[in-house]
């Protein structure tokens, strides 16, 4: 019996593998090969034969270059936290349906459909020093000098927030509204106030979703490029690591050095993901257990 079962399984596996082949080829050709080629490229220094870590050494010995890591983290981490906290609050409040839910959700999703460039231009037009906001505030006499909200750190944060918030909110809303409402009711019946329910029942159950949301928002924010150029100071305060890579590649035409920067960037993102995964395991070892049973 056992042997038969094993045979059947291996037959099935071969078939499955065969069916997977096209997508595997696709992934190999479109992702794995370019990625490995990038790593390979990063290990070659321009005009010198053979492998070398020269590109990495150059990156890490130039403060103007390695400083971009810190700049990018200092943009991505606060943005991610703000996006996560606000989406959590809003999604938690809307978990049992809400007045005009569809309208509100549609408005919140709008920025996704507009694209980064249009969004950034909108932010420039509204929040810029000659933008509507400052003109209104100055006209009303509340301030005499315009708030500088663009072409600096805040401008990039604003743009990132508007791009990431809808994604994060929708993800968390789906996650939270999938949690059985009777868990909340039963906690209340056991003497828990709404805040205790949130802290001890709902938050641990939302935690895996929060971790995933954090990872996605962080990775997307870390790769920030267009908004950092359009709304930040691409030569100074918001010279993120992707700008550094871009400059190497298309301003200095040093593809190997750009690849090295891209690899460093990928490693930073990976490190953050690993941290999140470890943290999530620690946070609630069994949070996903039994949830599927509802």
């Amino acid at each position: 019996m056992r042997a038969v079962a094993n045979d059947e399984r291996s037959e099935f596996d071969a078939l499955a593998l065969f069916c997977l082949l096209p997508s595997l080829l696709y992934v190999l050709a479109m992702f794995v090969y370019p990625f490995l080629y990038g790593v390979y490229l990063s290990l070659q220094v321009q005009k010198i034969d053979g492998f070398s870590l020269g590109n990495y050494v150059a990156f890490f010995s130039d403060a103007y270059q390695y400083g971009t890591i810190w700049i990018t983290f200092s943009l991505a981490i606060p943005t991610t936290i703000i996006v996560l906290v606000l989406s959590l609050c809003l999604a938690y409040g809307m978990r049992r349906g809400f007045f005009m839910e569809r309208t509100i959700t549609t408005i919140l999703i709008m920025p996704i459909s507009l694209g980064v460039i249009l969004l950034s231009e909108g932010i420039l037009g509204f929040y810029g020093s000659q933008g509507w906001l400052n003109q209104m505030l100055i006209a009303s006499g509340l301030i005499s000098e315009p708030f500088i909200l663009t072409h600096n750190y805040i401008g990039v944060m604003l743009a990132l927030f508007m791009q990431q918030f809808p994604f994060c909110f929708l993800m968390l809303l789906g996650y939270i509204s999938g949690i059985d409402p009777s868990l909340e009711s039963s906690a209340r019946m056991l003497g828990a106030t709404p805040s205790v329910v949130f802290r001890r029942v709902m938050l641990p159950l939302i935690a895996p979703g929060l971790a995933i949301a954090f990872a996605l928002v962080f990775v997307m924010s870390f790769a920030v490029f267009p908004s950092a150029v359009m709304l930040g100071q691409p030569a100074g305060a918001t010279r993120t690591i992707s700008i550094a890579a871009y400059q190497k590649a298309f301003e200095q035409y040093d593809m190997p050095a750009a690849s090295a920067i891209a690899v460093v960037m990928g490693l930073c993102q990976l490190a953050a993901l690993v941290l999140i995964i470890l943290f999530r395991r620690r946070l609630s070892p069994a949070a996903t257990m039994g949830v599927g049973k509802r």
Partner: peptide
């Protein structure tokens, strides 16, 4: 009174145990 102040116990159809 809110449910947590009534001192009643409740058993739900789907058990509603805390899965974590």
């Amino acid at each position: 009174l809110p449910p947590e102040k009534r001192g009643f116990g409740m058993v739900f159809q789907n058990y509603a145990l805390f899965p974590h």
